[in-house]
Computed example of a mutant assay.
Amino acid sequence: MIELENVAYSYGGGELLTDMSLSVPPGSFHFLTGPSGSGKTTFLKLCYGALQATAGHVRLFDRDVRGLGRDDVALLRRKIGVVHQDCQFLDHLPVTENVALPLTVSGQDADGADANLKELLAWVGLTSRADALPPELSGGERQRAALARAVIMSPDVILADEPTGNIDWEMSQRLLTLLVELNRMGKTILVATHDLGLIRAAKAQVQTRVLRISNRRLQMAGADL
């Protein structure tokens, strides 16, 4: 699904990440940890082609990102759903239209997918909020809407950047339940988080692998998590 081979990323003359190698197999569930500023968001952007490595190779679905044009990368990214840390909604559009936005951007008929869209909103518990605007949503509702938008195209991989960073524990558990359900459906999950409680809760439900960024390098986290 996603492979990194001796990957480094530099910005402004300084190296943010160095010598990173990782293979993310289909159906796996990974957590990515590390202190604030360690490069978790940058790492995720490398994993979905939003940034290009300054050294090494990133392969998405067996294709080296370095040799791809913008259109090719865009097509590959349809296979990857991303839950951004700040959700990135269009505040003038209701939840339904925000969730359906990837369909619109890709040129698909959002109206024709109406039944699936309703089912998806029901799955994340937002049926009653379908017509609400993003500023009217709670933190937990925003994150569940962001997850719905990330999976509307039925991607093979879901990447989530600190999805529980601004919500309470109960809502964190609800979001985790949705991610675990996706993984049990065969989806590959990679979640960047500093929440060790969330990782422990996930380990009790599904087989996970925990990675940590430390001193610009990627390491396997200890079994004590």
Results as ranks from 00 to 15, higher is better:
152 I>C: 12
86 D>P: 01
84 H>I: 03
173 Q>L: 15
114 D>Y: 02
124 V>W: 07
156 D>M: 14
129 R>N: 08
135 P>I: 00
87 C>S: 05
83 V>H: 08
93 L>F: 12
152 I>N: 13
91 D>P: 00
122 A>K: 08
92 H>N: 10
127 T>M: 07
139 G>I: 06
163 P>L: 08
190 L>Y: 05
87 C>T: 09
187 K>W: 01
179 L>F: 13
130 A>I: 05
154 S>R: 11
162 E>G: 13
148 A>C: 11
112 G>R: 10
161 D>T: 11
166 N>D: 13
96 T>P: 00
114 D>Q: 13
118 K>N: 07
117 L>S: 05
134 P>G: 09
166 N>S: 15
136 E>D: 07
174 R>S: 08
164 T>G: 11
189 I>L: 15
117 L>D: 02
135 P>G: 00
169 W>G: 02
190 L>G: 08
132 A>M: 06
142 R>Q: 07
104 T>N: 14
156 D>E: 15
182 L>P: 04
179 L>Q: 09
81 G>E: 08
145 A>W: 00
146 A>E: 12
132 A>K: 04
97 E>R: 15
108 Q>T: 12
171 M>I: 00
125 G>F: 05
82 V>N: 09
115 A>I: 01
119 E>G: 12
79 K>R: 15
137 L>V: 02
167 I>A: 13
162 E>M: 06
103 L>T: 13
125 G>V: 05
163 P>S: 13
95 V>D: 02
140 G>A: 10
115 A>T: 03
88 Q>I: 00
89 F>K: 00
189 I>F: 07
183 N>G: 12
115 A>Q: 07
133 L>H: 03
165 G>F: 01
161 D>E: 15
97 E>C: 07
83 V>R: 10
126 L>S: 13
126 L>N: 13
151 V>A: 07
93 L>G: 03
108 Q>I: 04
181 E>I: 03
78 R>N: 10
155 P>A: 02
141 E>V: 07
85 Q>Y: 05
132 A>F: 02
153 M>S: 12
186 G>E: 09
84 H>D: 04
97 E>M: 15
147 L>W: 13
166 N>F: 00
171 M>V: 01
149 R>W: 12
145 A>C: 12
126 L>M: 11
150 A>M: 09
113 A>I: 01
91 D>H: 01
84 H>Y: 14
131 D>E: 12
112 G>D: 03
162 E>C: 10
125 G>A: 11
155 P>W: 01
108 Q>R: 15
139 G>A: 10
92 H>A: 09
82 V>W: 06
173 Q>C: 05
116 N>G: 14
160 A>R: 11
136 E>S: 01
89 F>H: 00
80 I>A: 04
109 D>P: 04
84 H>M: 13
185 M>G: 08
126 L>I: 10
164 T>F: 08
160 A>F: 08
165 G>M: 06
97 E>F: 09
110 A>Q: 04
95 V>F: 02
118 K>I: 01
171 M>D: 13
78 R>V: 08
86 D>R: 07
94 P>W: 02
110 A>Y: 00
127 T>R: 11
168 D>C: 06
87 C>R: 06
190 L>N: 11
109 D>T: 05
100 A>G: 11
